[in-house]
Structure formats: C-alpha cells, structure tokens
Nucleic acid binder design. Structure first.
Length: 218
DNA sequence: GATGCGATTCACT
DNA sequence: GTGAATCGCATCG
C-alpha cells in the first residue's frame, strides 16, 4: 500500500494511510505533522539524526504552553512564517532547542524536536557531546539534539526543505509502524497536561524520560 | 527600568 | 532527588 505514485518531486511518506510529501505534511495541522515527523531524518553539521520523539505546540490563544501563545515577538517571529522552517530558541541561559514550523503562515504552530538517534556522523557527534557516556544519550533531549547537530541561534529561520541549506529534513526511508507511535503529556510544561501532544516511537532507547515540570523555588 | 523564570542539562548527595 | 549555571524575554511597577 505504501510508496506508490508520489505525484510530485518530493519523496513520499505514509501518514494515516495516505501518501503525502513532507512539505504538504508540514503545511497542515500540527498534531498530524508531529506524528509524521517521527522517523524523519534531520541533517546538519555532518551529523544525521533519526527523530524518535517530538512535541506539538499550537499558536496564538490555542495553546497556553506555546511561545506563540501571547502573539508575535522578536523571538518567536519565525513561528508565524511559512511552514518547513527551523525555529531555534535559547533557554536557561545555555541551551538551544529546535522546532519545525507547521501550518500556513500566521498560524504559528510548531513541533519541538525532543530526541533522536544518531544514524550518521557518529564520531563527530561524540566529539560534540563528551558528556554522553553512551551513544543513546547523544541526542536524548531537545538541547542535546541541537548540540549534536552543531546548531544554535544562527540557524534560526533556515528552510528545512532547501537541499542546499545548512539544515535539512528528509522523510523516513521506511515509515515507522503506526502502532509504535505513542502519545502522552508534554515534558516540562505547566498546565495543558490534558493535551497529549508529545509523540514518540515505542521501544526506542533514545526517547527521553518523562519529567513533570519541576516546581520552582521562589 | 527592574525582576523572575523558562519547551534543560549536568554534577553531586 | 536537589541545585547550579546563565541569558533573553515577558511581565510588572
């Protein structure tokens, strides 16, 4: 059933039974986009990572946990742009996190890339993350994923579908078994715990452990 | 203009 | 399990 007759030049992938290309998937609603991103391969800085865990974030007024919730700012501007772009933000004074912008321009939804498996450039990856004692920890966590790819704020706004860009996204060679896709509450997010917008591939060792938001001392 | 805390990670107890 | 590191943004006065 899969992989027959990709109509356009884009490589086909299977999502919910229909063959669509990546650009089409990312232009649509964020939740199916997040699911479809599982198994995709992101390439940057000589390292390739297969995504095993992602989280969906909604737009203005739709998702209290989203950076875009309160409207457009200098930081989140990329989220309001066209889909398929990379939104990079800096947090805790030392970490970078990667997101894929979804939906048509103006919707400001995005998918946070939380974890993945390094499938190429292993030695480079190890050198960038000396703290990782085992390979499965190389990209196990959003900031680790960014670090292993050698990405920071300078990559903000990059077009992931541009083959000549610094960061590229490609559909999986083989779509993951839909039965292996699990969902649950997002990590480190206060409120909206009822929204199971975290998606991961069951059984993958690179999926990060779930941690509820830490209560903060004041 | 000042202040508090974050879509986190690492080291230590 | 707890705390520190450390910068920018959002919020408040």
């Amino acid at each position: 059933m899969a992989g027959v007759g990709g109509p356009t030049g884009g490589a086909p992938l299977t999502a919910g039974g229909a063959a669509v290309d990546l650009a089409t998937l990312l232009a649509g609603p964020v939740v199916p986009a997040a699911r479809g991103l599982l198994g995709c391969v992101i390439t940057a800085g000589g390292v390739r990572v297969r995504l095993t865990e992602v989280e969906a974030y909604g737009g203005v007024g739709a998702d209290e946990a989203s950076h875009a919730h309160r409207g457009e700012t200098a930081r989140n501007r990329v989220m309001f742009g066209p889909p398929g772009r990379l939104y990079v933000y800096f947090t805790y004074g030392l970490h970078w996190c990667l997101n894929v912008v979804c939906g048509p321009a103006g919707t400001a939804s995005a998918v946070l890339l939380r974890a993945g498996e390094v499938v190429d450039g292993l030695e480079l990856a190890r050198r960038r993350r000396p703290a990782a004692r085992v390979d499965r920890d190389l990209a196990r966590g959003p900031a680790r994923l960014a670090q292993v790819l050698g990405l920071d704020g300078t990559a903000n706004g990059a077009d992931l579908l541009d083959p000549s860009g610094p960061v590229r996204l490609a559909p999986p060679a083989q779509a993951p078994d839909p039965a292996r896709v699990r969902s649950g509450p997002r990590v480190g997010v206060a409120g909206a715990e009822d929204r199971p917008w975290r998606f991961w591939l069951d059984g993958e060792p690179t999926v990060s452990p779930y941690r509820r938001r830490v209560r903060r001392h004041r």
